[in-house]
């Protein structure tokens, strides 16, 4: 089943962003994709989402794909519930359940512009998950949230993942976030997967876990940052 990419390439003019990239994402696997800014991690995600028509190579995704973007991208002229059901044949009760799952049952009639950043991002997750995807793509969905909201939304994503078990590809630039959430962490560099590490620590995880501490140093080095330089 799994999602397979082979020989995936994409260039913007002379700049090669993805260079004959191979990757397999296992079913139900939570993968984080790290990379420096401009390393092509969003390009890879967009290719998987079917939003990039100029990418070459083979992308083989079985089952449906859903995306939650960096900005929630709710349709502003549709009330929350209508946003969840947009393009969906499933009954309304299912959409209501999805809203309840992310704690927004009461806001079903609200206009998206009246939601807080955290609420809108949770709604965006509900809109993705109500489609029961086999592959859930998360494009830095936490980066615009404040630190406290981010912690609760992290928890929420883990809960939803545990319940629905889609394969998840989380694009992020935050090493700690990747270590806290994922089973597997990839580092994209020069258009290819430069590092591919698995995390065995159980959840909930703590930043001080020796495995995570060691991995953090490795990953930061892979990203070209020396940990000593950080406070």
């Amino acid at each position: 089943m799994a999602t397979r990419l082979s020989g995936v390439a994409r260039a913007f003019g002379d700049r090669v962003v993805l260079d004959s990239l191979d990757l397999v994402l296992g079913d139900g696997e939570f993968t984080a994709l790290l990379g420096r800014s401009g390393s092509g991690k969003s390009t890879l995600l967009r290719a998987l989402a079917g939003l990039d028509h100029e990418v070459t190579g083979t992308i083989d995704v079985t089952g449906s794909v859903a995306v939650a973007f960096q900005e929630p991208r709710l349709v502003p002229w549709k009330r929350l519930l209508a946003n969840i059901t947009l393009g969906l044949d499933a009954p309304v009760t299912k959409a209501k359940e999805a809203l309840a799952e992310v704690g927004l049952a009461e806001r079903a009639d609200a206009w998206p512009l009246t939601l807080s950043g955290g609420e809108a991002q949770r709604a965006s997750l509900a809109r993705a998950l109500v489609r029961e995807p086999e592959l859930l793509l998360l494009d830095e969905p936490f980066s615009a949230l404040d630190a406290l909201t981010r912690i609760t939304v992290h928890q929420l994503v883990l809960e939803l993942w545990a319940r629905h078990r889609p394969a998840v590809l989380l694009v992020t630039h935050d090493v700690d976030e990747a270590l806290l959430l994922a089973d597997r962490v990839l580092v994209l560099d020069e258009g290819r997967i430069a590092h591919d590490v698995s995390i065995t620590a159980g959840r909930p995880r703590h930043r001080e876990d020796p495995e995570l501490v060691a991995l953090r140093t490795t990953l930061l080095a892979a990203l070209g940052v020396s940990p000593e330089g950080r406070s």
């Binding site: 989402a49 939003l51 973007f69 900005e71 991208r73 349709v75 549709k78 947009l86 393009g87 489609r131």
Partner: peptide, 21 residues
């Protein structure tokens, strides 16, 4: 254009894209 991308990921038809977005 970002909403048009959302429509793509939500698998909206062209008719639905025009009507809803």
């Amino acid at each position: 254009g970002k909403l048009a991308e959302v429509a793509t990921t939500l698998k909206l038809s062209r008719g639905q894209l025009i009507r809803h977005i």
